[in-house]
């Protein structure tokens, strides 16, 4: 019998040996997020002479499972900025709330000028870089689309590493491989932006969404598309791919069960 009350009723050391406290510790350093859980796939965007078009499908995948089919991954910040989110959906929701609180703060005064897309990109890039430097990244790849301080089209990205990049066309995830080459055919450089009008840009983006649906197994034929110009944001969240058909699949030879 031990005279210490806290030891009463516990396995006795002389019988069972000292308690192995290592079960309480996890060996190795602290760990934060190692992988995304529920994910959104590509976001694609292209500048045109008066603004920017951006699109993302409405799917949130849980691994290979198409878990949620009505997820809005384009978030309007104000009348001149839209943010598109690829990657982890819960991190996207966190960022959305962060932007919401920022927007409330920005609107305390009705007389100040609102944050433009360039301001917002700088801010979000800072947030992403801070989190990756804490070894606790927000698992997203963001596209920030809108107008800059001179009301000119602005498009830039920030990713989970805090890397920033800007180009006339941008795409995250699979889109970077599948859509970007198509987008660059029309918009190879900054100079070409002036030659593209809104209709062309929308058509181009829609075409890319179709290619992505055909080739990306974690994609959906329902998507959101936003057009940002001086007139404001035109956001449609329930678009469906047009003229899309799997009929051509019948003609593919060399796979599956068909003979010759």
């Amino acid at each position: 019998m031990n005279h210490l009350p806290q030891a009463w009723g516990r396995p006795r050391d002389e019988v069972y040996g000292a308690y192995d406290h290592s079960h309480f510790q996890n060996a190795g350093p602290n760990q934060h997020t190692q992988q995304p859980i529920v994910t959104g796939t590509s976001v694609i965007a292209a500048k045109f002479k008066d603004g920017v078009v951006i699109a993302a499908d409405n799917l949130a995948s849980y691994g290979s499972l198409a878990r949620f089919t009505d997820v809005k991954r384009l978030r309007k910040f104000n009348s001149e900025v839209v943010v598109g989110f690829g990657g982890d959906v819960s991190d996207m929701q966190y960022l959305d709330r962060l932007l919401n609180s920022l927007d409330i703060r920005e609107n305390y005064s009705s007389t100040d000028t609102p944050l433009n897309a360039k301001n917002l990109h700088t801010y979000l890039a800072k947030v992403m870089y801070k989190r990756r430097s804490d070894f606790n990244p927000l698992w997203n790849h963001l596209l920030i689309a809108g107008l800059d301080g001179e009301s000119k089209p602005f498009l830039a990205s920030a990713d989970l590493l805090g890397t920033t990049f800007s180009a006339p066309t941008l795409a995250t995830g699979f889109g970077a491989h599948l859509a970007q080459p198509i987008l660059r055919r029309t918009l190879p450089d900054e100079a070409s932006v002036a030659n593209v009008n809104k209709e062309d840009a929308v058509k181009l983006i829609k075409e890319c969404m179709k290619v992505l649906f055909y080739r990306d197994a974690r994609s959906l034929d329902k998507y959101s598309i936003a057009i940002i110009t001086k007139e404001g944001v035109e956001l449609k969240e329930n678009e469906k791919l047009e003229n899309q058909s799997w009929a051509f699949a019948e003609t593919i030879r060399g796979y599956g069960t068909q003979v010759n």
Binding site: D112, T113, L115, K118, N119, L120, T122, Y123, K126
Partner: peptide, 8 residues
């Protein structure tokens, strides 16, 4: 630094 904006 955070917003690339001259403070109002």
């Amino acid at each position: 630094l955070t917003y690339d904006r001259a403070i109002p």
